[in-house]
Amino acid sequence: MLEARDLSIGYDRRVVASGIEVAVKRGEILCLLGPNGAGKTTLFKTLLGLIPAMAGEVHLNGQPLATLSRAEIARAMAYVPQAQHLEFAYTVLDVVLMGRTAHLGPFAGPRPADRERAHAALASLGIDDLASADVNRISGGQRQLCLIARALAQDAPLLVMDEPTASLDLGNRLLVLDRVRTLRESGYGIVFSTHDPDQARELSNHVAVIADGRLAAYGSPDETLTAATLSAVYGVSVAIERTESGRHVVVSANNTRPSTQ
């Protein structure tokens, strides 16, 4: 369980946001929302222990993050970055194997058991056939799944995902979201950042909205993703419409028109 207690985040002695209290347990998804520059990435890095908290603490399974070693953190919490181009043409399996690092001795390389774990992680996401493919030559969605597989191979119960659908096309986005949902059902706790309130509403148990240097809203999707909050946070007038299937979608209040569905 990952918990931020009265957390101030920032870098170079500059506080970006403070008073942040969020928590995520196994089997839950916490979605992070906020306008560009509000500090989502800074909060991510602070939660992962990559940059120090300016004030307050991050607790991982009841222990302050600052007291844990990198390997201890890595065995409890895995990071899924946005898929990027890599300088070296690793295979998908090479990348996933790197997820095993925290389970290896300091001077050891992966053993056969680690390869099996990596293949299992790939198989659980349905991409085991890509194991020997060049990671720079597969689709963006496949690459994102590869990074999720790496996090699974890490055998950490918490996954921290930085906008995993940001640059994906529709098909890949739905594929990745589907897998994320499955992971929650199998007991992973997930922190997930997104720019899409509809995605957040659909997926998450809790939503945290960061804006104006503070936690603007925190709670269930219905409590937080209101037209009033979103309008205030993003500085545009929005409305929330209900579709025929019962879903809620966020639309511009200035350009309201009937759904075509």
């Binding site: 992962l48 990198r70 065995r75 970055p81």
Partner: peptide, 13 residues
Amino acid sequence: SLGDDEARALGVN
């Protein structure tokens, strides 16, 4: 070679 942040998140000092 994955970069500092990813390497640290994977458990490397």
